[in-house]
Amino acid sequence: MTEYKLVVVGAGGVGKSALTIQLIQNHFVDEYDPTIEDSYRKQVVIDGETCLLDILDTAGQEEYSAMRDQYMRTGEGFLCVFAINNTKSFEDIHHYREQIKRVKDSEDVPMVLVGNKCDLPSRTVDTKQAQDLARSYGIPFIETSAKTRQGVDDAFYTLVREIRKHKEKMSKDGKKKKKKSKTKCVIM
């Protein structure tokens, strides 16, 4: 069974824990209790493949930012979460993405942009803004509501699919490099 290491990042209060708990335990946590770091595991079937999701729910508070490099190193894919009623959390996505790329030393890291709290009427981040940002990053965008469960499975499952595509691409690139290195030079 394939294991996928997913990391949920975003500013404090955007609903990272609520999304994760909704996926794992099928219930909505409405009281806000700032996370330092929590880890969850769940076995699911995605596109006919049974897999184990190892999900790291991270601290959004700035005082825990020193811990970010460590979990970013171990993560295979990242859910970059903002709240649709919090423009600052949307603007912060850029910083999370840049930090992930720096730590992973790669421009090509599996990510999904997630606009959470889409059940709320007080939207300050337009869907088109988020779609445009995701398009500019070359990553999928999904709106979710941890409260109603809308888009929750889709967000995590899409990230797994992005990781699969990335692994497939990397193995193809690896095979191309191996083929090239088999060419021999004969000096007579």
Rank of each mutant, 00 (worst) to 15 (best):
Y4L: 10
K5Y: 00
G10W: 01
G12D: 08
G13F: 11
K16N: 03
A18G: 09
T20G: 03
I21V: 10
L23V: 09
L23C: 10
L23W: 07
I24L: 15
F28K: 00
D30F: 07
E31V: 05
E31N: 03
Y32F: 03
P34D: 00
T35Q: 00
R41H: 02
Q43C: 05
V44P: 08
E49K: 14
T50K: 13
T50C: 08
I55E: 00
I55H: 02
D57V: 00
G60V: 01
E62R: 04
S65V: 07
A66W: 10
A66R: 08
D69T: 06
Y71Q: 13
R73W: 07
T74F: 06
G75C: 12
G75D: 04
E76P: 02
G77H: 02
F78H: 05
F78V: 04
C80G: 03
V81F: 14
F82T: 07
F82V: 08
I84N: 14
N86L: 02
K88C: 06
S89G: 09
F90S: 05
I93S: 04
H94L: 14
H95R: 13
E98G: 03
E98T: 03
K101W: 13
R102N: 09
S106V: 12
E107S: 09
D108H: 08
V112L: 10
V114E: 00
G115Q: 10
K117I: 15
L120G: 14
L120T: 10
S122M: 10
S122N: 14
T124G: 10
V125Q: 09
K128D: 06
K128N: 06
Q129R: 07
A130P: 10
D132W: 06
A134R: 12
S136A: 12
Y137N: 10
I139S: 05
F141H: 05
I142C: 14
S145C: 10
R149C: 07
Q150A: 13
Y157T: 07
L159D: 01
V160Q: 12
V160G: 05
R161N: 13
R161M: 01
I163S: 03
H166Y: 06
H166S: 08
K169E: 06
M170T: 04
M170G: 10
K177Q: 12
K180I: 08
V186N: 12
M188F: 11
